[in-house]
Simulated assay, not measured.
Amino acid sequence: MTTHTAWTHVCSVSDIPRLGSRVVKRADGDVALFRTASDEVFALHDHCPHKGGALSQGIVHGKTVTCPLHGWNIAFETGEACAPDEGCTMRFAVKVEGEAVFVQFA
């Protein structure tokens, strides 16, 4: 049996500031979309695993975001905190088709 998870169109790439973020409000927790300098798009639960800071308000550099509360760095590709910190936030699959950004929320 194959489970199919739908892709949800959330915005256009240009709606996410380069080296910035945009928040998708969801009943089960907000999702932060991030855009790197090379226009890659990533999605993480907008909640730092350390003290719950809004990652969407952090600083994007390379393929990580620095939490605005205590400076933890979270890797976009895994949702994992970078050493020496330990913890993980939920990561969501993203695909970009032209300018359209789609996320798998399940």
Rank of each mutant, 00 (worst) to 15 (best):
G53K: 10
V60Y: 10
H50G: 03
T78Q: 11
F76W: 03
L55Y: 04
H50I: 07
L55N: 06
G53T: 00
I74H: 01
G52A: 07
G71H: 12
G53W: 06
C67I: 03
C67Q: 02
L55H: 08
K51L: 12
V65D: 05
I74R: 00
G58F: 02
I74N: 03
A54K: 14
L69M: 13
G52E: 00
A81Q: 01
G53R: 08
K51W: 02
G79V: 15
T66Y: 03
G79T: 00
Q57L: 14
H50F: 08
E80M: 13
L69C: 10
F76E: 02
A81W: 02
W72D: 03
A75K: 04
P68V: 02
G53F: 07
E80I: 04
E77A: 15
H50R: 09
V60Q: 07
G79Y: 02
G62F: 11
H50K: 05
I59T: 07
L69Y: 15
I74Q: 04
V60G: 11
E80D: 15
F76Q: 01
A54I: 04
E77R: 04
S56V: 00
V65W: 07
N73D: 14
A54N: 08
F76H: 06
L55F: 06
H61F: 13
V60R: 05
I59R: 13
I59M: 09
E77N: 13
N73L: 11
K51T: 06
G79W: 00
T66V: 15
S56G: 05
T66N: 08
C67K: 08
N73H: 11
G71V: 00
W72K: 00
V65P: 13
F76A: 08
I74K: 01
N73C: 13
V60I: 04
G52H: 09
H70Y: 15
E77G: 06
C67L: 01
E77K: 14
V65L: 12
H61I: 04
L69I: 07
K51D: 07
P49T: 01
P49R: 00
G71E: 04
C67M: 03
L55Q: 06
L55C: 08
K51H: 03
H61T: 02
A75C: 09
W72A: 01
K63H: 09
K51Q: 12
K51F: 03
C67D: 05
H61M: 04
P68H: 14
T66R: 15
E80N: 02
K63G: 09
F76T: 01
G79Q: 00
H50C: 06
F76S: 11
I59S: 05
I59W: 11
H61C: 08
V60S: 04
K51M: 10
G79C: 15
E80G: 11
H70Q: 14
G58D: 05
P49Q: 01
G71Q: 12
E77W: 07
V65H: 08
G58N: 09
G62K: 12
